[in-house]
Every structure is written in C-alpha cells, then in structure tokens.
Design a binder for these strands. Sequence first.
DNA 1: TTGTAGGCGTTATCAT
DNA 2: ATGATAACGCCTACAA
Lengths: 334, 334
Amino acid sequence: MGRPQRTRTVTIRDVARAAGVSPATVSRVMNGQAKVAAELAQRVQRVAGSLGYRPSALAQGLATGRTGLVAILVPDLGNPMFQSVLRGISRAANAQGYRVVVGDSHETPGEEPVLARETRLRTDGLVLCSPRVADDELCELVDGLRPLVLVNRQVAGLDVPTVWVDYAAGARAVVAHLVGLGHRHVAYLAGPTASVSNRQRLDTLRACVGERFRLSVLECGSMHDDGYEAAERALATGATALIGYNDLVALGALAWLQSAGVAVPGRMSVVGFDDIPFARYTNPALTTVAVPQEELGLQAWARLSAPLHGLPSPGDVCFTPRLEVRASTGPVCG
Amino acid sequence: MGRPQRTRTVTIRDVARAAGVSPATVSRVMNGQAKVAAELAQRVQRVAGSLGYRPSALAQGLATGRTGLVAILVPDLGNPMFQSVLRGISRAANAQGYRVVVGDSHETPGEEPVLARETRLRTDGLVLCSPRVADDELCELVDGLRPLVLVNRQVAGLDVPTVWVDYAAGARAVVAHLVGLGHRHVAYLAGPTASVSNRQRLDTLRACVGERFRLSVLECGSMHDDGYEAAERALATGATALIGYNDLVALGALAWLQSAGVAVPGRMSVVGFDDIPFARYTNPALTTVAVPQEELGLQAWARLSAPLHGLPSPGDVCFTPRLEVRASTGPVCG
DNA sequence: TTGTAGGCGTTATCAT
DNA sequence: ATGATAACGCCTACAA
C-alpha cells in the first residue's frame, strides 16, 4: 500500500500487543464503553499514552458508520450573518458531542452540488444555508444528502426539514416605514440573481410599486464592495432611499455616501437586511430587517440531530423578521 | 454492525456486480487511473450513475492513506483578518486539488490542542494560525500534527515551517508616526493575554516608553465589542491617541468615540493592526499596520504542500508590515 | 470480563 | 486489460 507519509502510525494492535491484551479490549478502554477490569484499563491507558496512540478517525468512521461530524455550507463565510448562523448551530451541536465543519461556496452556484456531496461523504449530516443552486438541481441533489436541513430556502414539494425567514414580510415592513417617512422613490441594490432571498425581496418590493411608490432596481452583489460601488448609481436615480440586498451591501453604500459627502438620512435613507452586529455601530447606525441569526442555527440543529438519533424531525419553522429602526432612515427632505 | 442510518449505501461491489466486472475495475474507472477498455469503462460509468454510486471518502482515505484535505485552525473566524488568510490558503490549495476545512477555537486556548489533534486525524496536514496555546504545550503538540505549518507564531528551537509578521517593526512604525504628530500619551487596548502577537505589540510599545512617550495599557479583547467598550476608559486616561490590538478593536473604539461625539482625530487619534477590508471604509478611514493577509495564506500552503509531495519545506518567511496612514490619525490639538 | 473473527468500502499488488 | 485478494485500522457480535 502506498502510504505517502513515511510516518508509521501506532495502531490499536500495537497498543494491544504492548499491553498484552486483545485489540478489542483496547477499543473498549478507549471508548470507555463496556466493562473492563479497572487495573487492565489503567495499564492500557498508560501504554496507549506512552505510545502516543490516536485512534484513526477514518477507520472508526468506517467501522461505526458515524463520524460525529456535521457540516454547514454557506455562500459567503465573510458575511457575519452566516457566521452567526454557524455559531448557533455549533453551540447546539457541540453540546451534543458533535463537531461542525464549514464549507464556503463563494457565491458560486456551480460549486455547491460538488461541495455538498463531497462534504456529506465525510459527515453524518448537512445544513445547506441559503443555497444558490437552482430549484431543479437542488431537488436532484437532496436525496443523496440526507440527513439534510435547509436554511433560508424553501422548495415546494420537497420533503426536507426547513428553517426560513419571511423576507416578504420584512420587505413590506421596510416599504411601510419608508413610505411613512414620505419616500416615493426607492432604489434597491439587488443581490446575486441566484439568491432566492434576493428574489423574494425584489418580488415583494415590485409588488409594492404604485402611484405612491416608485422603484429603481440596480444590479449589485452581496458584499461590502458591491454596495460601495453601486451607491453612486443609486444616487443618480434620484431615489431618496436605498435598500441594500443585505447589511453588507447597505453598509458599503453607506460608506460611499459618507465619503461623497451625501447626507444620510438627509439626502438618502439607507436600509439593510439581517442586522449583523456591525450594523448598530456605524454612523449613522443602520436601519435594518433583523433576523434571529443564531436562532436559525439552533433550529437547524434541532432538525438535523433528530434523524441522527433516529427520531422524526420537527416540522418546518418560519421566523418573521422585525424592522430595527435606527438612524440611517429619516423623513424625506423636500 | 450497528449502522445508525438505515440508508443502505451503494458500494463498489454493487456496481461491480451490476456491471458484471470486478470491484477493482470499477475502482480503476472511477479514478480514471489505469487502462480500462473504453467500452467497459462506459458501461461501468453508466451503471454507477444509475445506481447513484458515491465512493466512500472514509474508505478511500483508509485505503490510500490520504484524504485530500488540509485544515486551518483560527482563534476567531469572525475576524476578517483570518478570513483573508483562509482565502489565500484555499486558493492555493484548491489549485492543487486539495480542499481546506476550517476550525475555530473561539479564542479558547484550552480548546486548541484537542481541536488540532482531532482535526488533524481527518486531514493530511494542518495550519495553525495565531495559536493561543502556551509555548510548552505547543511544543508537545507539534510532533503529533505534522505535516504542520505555523502562521503568526514563532517558537524558538521548534522545527516547524513558519510564516510570520514582524509586529515589533509595525508597532515601532506606529509610535514613530504618532510621536511625529506630537502625541505624548498613547493608550493601548490590549488583546487576549494568550495572544503572542499581542505580547509582541505590547512589549514593543513598552520599550518605546520614555520622556517623550507615555503609555497607558488597558485590558480589552480581540473583538469589535471589546474595543467599543474599552474606548471610554481609553479616553479617561487623557491619552491623545489610541492603538487597538487589532482593527476590529480599533474600529469598535472608533465607533464608540463617534457615538460619544469625540472628535477623531481631533481629540483622539486611532490606530489598528491588520488592515482588514473594512478599515478603509469607516469614517474617518482607519490608520493601521497593514499585513499581507492573503500572502500569509499562500506562503503557508507552500510550506504545507511540500511535505505532502515528499519535498523539503521552504524556509521560514517573515513579512515586514507597512503603516497605512489614513484619516483616523492626526496632529495632537493642543 | 476478555478474546476471536468478520466486516466496514476502497485501493493496490500480484497473478492471469 | 482484468480479476482475485490482502491490506487499511477499527468496532462489535459472538464465543469462551
């Protein structure tokens, strides 16, 4: 066998031999499982320690059919929103003896299926957070990935536990807020076209268009730089308020407006989605649609751990976001 | 065998049987390795596809001795600095067919050894980024983790490839800059005591203390909130300039100063370390000690991939950071 | 309580 | 070019 590393690893047999017992006994001692004579256990422990024995996670996984690992895949690890979800799921999973590994698809829909499959192969379960892959492809993918949980992505007629946020309600709340402040022309800095939640926000905003509400949609992206770059175009539309696809985009736009000397909210109000930690610290602080990020993670774990323990998964759960009004929005100055 | 999941997985044998060939042939086809008759290969491919066969990564790893995975461990995934390092290493590793998994010790030194060992067990190599674990414990740890690379942590007399930054030089540059602007009393918002780079910065600053330079050290932390909370104390010391342990801390402090109506840099200059992407977008933009974050990742991979390919690892590399002067520092107003 | 042996799914050596 | 077969390291019925 071509073992690349010339490091001869210490196996369970080596320990067994050195301790004068059978491999089975060593296994039992290492796993603290069955009853082993205290004295024997001691000896095995000592020998294992002195030999520097580490059970092979691969072999264990192969033999037991479980790895003790679950994975969460996100489109952009740089987004604090996803980090919060990650934190939520990690906390919950760790409390039950599972480790969480992270995958980042870098907003590349094409990468997701391969990354998902490959990751799932090494773990006991998967959480797909805001997947960008198309509906039909997602449907094909799903069966090979169970146990699986979807966060922020509902697919009709798909039997997969799901945790999601009603962004339509959030978007309507934003519109109501802005219209109440007298805004009649709003610019939306659109996120990735592959993002379903972007589509939800966009569709909802479009549905609000009427005599008292005009909408300019600008292509943007999902990151801070994208918002920074798009802000000037937003200003040029003549809109008096700007809605970012997410907080990162909104903060990017805010940064540009500041640097360009555009008064916020005097000349331009700014709104985001998510309520990432940073949002409250900018100047002015960002008005945003707050979603319970860590809670999403917790609920995701609840739905992933159930099948891991042979239990039925709880039903889907939907959170209604809350508009967090801060200083970046104000009445339109006429 | 207690297989928890009742999902009978398709094995290489099933494919072999269904295709009327031996498992060995299927293996060869899947790996595109040796020569297999074109027609046979076709058939195997078809059968494998229709059966939904996915090779077990665990079994492959066990049989080949390699996983195609490397891991990077960071103390705080929420810090954009570490994300940039991660990006650098991922880019380089992916280009050579390796995947990178990431672990987060959450600034908990005690977690590092167990996390490191456990992660290493499932990967072919490890990068420890800014480890917080104590020197002696790190020394013990090291041998069980090779192939291993250290980023931002040098340990004397330890034979481990290392990529690091000369933060002492960076700190001296900051002091020179501030003194040149007339500052005579500076507050340092200290990071985690377990952070070696915090110690380097602190020691260097202390060494600069003299008749023309007074230093107040305040306990802080490594995150945005820590800086936000510590800023008031810094102001109370009467210092005219504030140095954050890192950019996150400096930006937190900046946010508090803004909200408290303290003029920056008029009343208080602010400096950070790292030059995270955000630093240039705040208002005022942050003066900071810029380190080549992605480059650190690239160089780390270069040192990790070498032993993976049976080559000798390149020597250690040290980067000298560059002071990026922006608008958050200015002459003392007297 | 402890040992024996078969199997987890794959790869690689060695025949054919 | 293809097929047996022995590892890889561990776990767990089952036997003792």
